[in-house]
């Protein structure tokens, strides 16, 4: 995407809005939310159901970050700068799951 500060200022003439991609993304996110809501009532609680929820949530997150926050259209360097530190969260999850017992015993 061109930097807005480098675009010429349009005097008088305002171009037509280009919003089809915005609505498409909106309908995808809405559909995923509706699906999650349906699964919450049609499926008994289980590890499989939780896994489905997490996968669908990551899908939704992808559309919000890639399209709405425009990250997909930024340079590769910026995309990796944001995504690579996120892998630290995997470490956080593993650490807390394996050490969870010790934390619980120390507090309670």
């Amino acid at each position: 995407m061109a930097n807005p500060s480098t675009q010429p200022i349009h005097a008088g003439e305002i171009p037509k809005p280009n919003t089809a991609w915005i609505w498409k993304t909106f309908w995808i996110i809405t559909a995923i939310t509706a699906l999650e809501f349906a699964i919450a009532f049609m499926m008994p609680s289980s590890t499989l159901r939780n896994t489905i929820f997490i996968v669908l949530t990551i899908f939704k997150a992808f559309f919000i970050v890639a399209e709405f926050m425009h990250l997909k259209h930024e340079t590769k360097g910026l995309i990796w700068t944001i995504l690579v530190p996120m892998s630290l969260l995997i470490w956080l999850l593993v650490a807390l799951i394996t050490e969870g017992n010790a934390i619980h015993n120390a507090i309670f």
Binding site: H10, I14, I22, F68
Partner: peptide, 15 residues
Amino acid sequence: SVTMVLAVEAGHRFD
């Protein structure tokens, strides 16, 4: 969030 993207898009068009 959708109306926010629409505002950003309008900003690109200086509308």
